[in-house]
Simulated scan of single mutants.
Amino acid sequence: MLEHTKGVYIVAQTPFDEAGNVDLNSIDSLVEFYRQHGASGFTVLGVSGEAGKLTSAEAQQVAQRYIERAGDLPVIVGVSNPSLAQLADFSAQVMDLGAAGVMVAPPAGIQTDEELFGYFAALFRHNEGIPTVLQDFPFASKVAMSVPAILQLVESHPEIGLIKEEDLPCLNKITRLRESQGRRVAILTGNNAMYLPLELRRGADGPMAGFSYPEMLAQVYQLHQRGEADKADDLFDLYLPLLRYEAMGFWGVCARKEVMRRRGAIAHATMRTPGPRLSAQDLAELDRLVARVEQRRGEYAGA
Score class of each variant (00 low, 15 high):
Glu32Phe: 10
Gly78Val: 06
Gly38His: 06
Gly302Asn: 15
Phe117Glu: 11
Pro158Tyr: 11
Thr189Asp: 02
Glu159Ser: 12
Glu294Ser: 10
Ala267Met: 09
Ser141Glu: 04
Phe139Tyr: 10
Gly78Leu: 11
Tyr245Pro: 00
Glu68Ile: 12
Arg288Leu: 02
Leu177Phe: 05
Trp251Tyr: 14
Leu289Met: 06
Ala232Tyr: 08
Leu177Gln: 11
Ser212Lys: 12
Gln181Lys: 15
Asn172Phe: 06
Arg35Tyr: 08
Ile110Asp: 00
Lys257Ser: 00
Arg69Ile: 02
Ile67Asn: 13
Val79Phe: 04
Phe42Thr: 09
Pro82Trp: 02
Ala121Trp: 00
Asp205Glu: 11
Gly129Pro: 12
Ala291Tyr: 02
Trp251Glu: 08
Ile67Phe: 14
Val253Ser: 03
Phe139Glu: 08
Arg226Glu: 13
Gly7Trp: 14
Gly52Pro: 06
Gly161His: 10
Ala39Leu: 07
Glu18Tyr: 01
Ser48Met: 15
Leu134Ser: 07
Val259Asn: 00
Val220Trp: 01
Leu54Ser: 05
Ala70Leu: 06
Asp205Cys: 12
Leu286Ala: 10
Val147Asn: 11
Glu114Met: 11
Ile187Gly: 06
Cys170Gly: 14
Pro138Met: 06
Leu24Arg: 03
Ile266Pro: 05
Leu223Tyr: 14
Cys170Gln: 13
Gly182Val: 14
Ala88Phe: 02
Met103Phe: 03
Asn25Glu: 06
Ile150Cys: 10
Leu283Ser: 08
Ala105Trp: 08
Arg262Glu: 00
Leu196Ile: 07
Ser48Phe: 15
Val293Met: 03
Tyr245Trp: 01
Gly118Arg: 08
Asp89Phe: 15
Ser141Trp: 09
Ala144Asn: 14
Gly109Arg: 06
Leu196Val: 02
Val31Met: 04
Lys173Pro: 04
Arg256Pro: 00
Ala269Arg: 00
Ala149Arg: 04
Asp28Trp: 03
Ser40Asp: 14
Gly210Met: 14
Asp136Gly: 07
Asp113Lys: 12
Phe139Met: 14
Leu73Trp: 10
Glu3Arg: 15
Ala144Gln: 15
Asp205Phe: 07
Ile163Tyr: 00
Leu153Pro: 08
Val79Glu: 03
Ala88Ser: 07
Leu238Thr: 00
Arg201Gln: 15
Val62Trp: 04
Pro107Met: 12
Leu289His: 12
Glu228Cys: 04
Gly78Phe: 01
Phe211Gln: 01
Asp233Pro: 09
Ala57Asn: 06
Thr273Met: 04
Asn191Gly: 02
Gly264Tyr: 13
Arg178Phe: 08
Met194Pro: 01
Lys173Thr: 15
Glu68Asn: 13
Asn127Ser: 13
Gly109Asp: 12
Phe90Met: 10
Glu199Ser: 04
Pro214Glu: 07
Leu177Gly: 13
Val185Leu: 08
Val253Asn: 01
Leu235His: 07
Leu278His: 05
Glu58Pro: 01
Thr175Glu: 08
Glu155Ala: 15
Val11His: 04
Gly264Leu: 07
Leu283Pro: 04
Glu58Cys: 10
Cys170Ile: 13
Ala122Gln: 15
Glu215Lys: 12
Pro197Ala: 12
Val75Pro: 14
Pro82His: 09
Ala301Gln: 10
Ala88Glu: 05
Ser56Gly: 09
Val11Asn: 04
Arg256Gly: 05
Met208Cys: 10
Asp89Gln: 09
Tyr213Ala: 01
Lys6Asp: 14
Asn25Ser: 04
Ile163Phe: 07
Val104Pro: 09
Gly101Arg: 06
Glu165Cys: 03
Met1Trp: 13
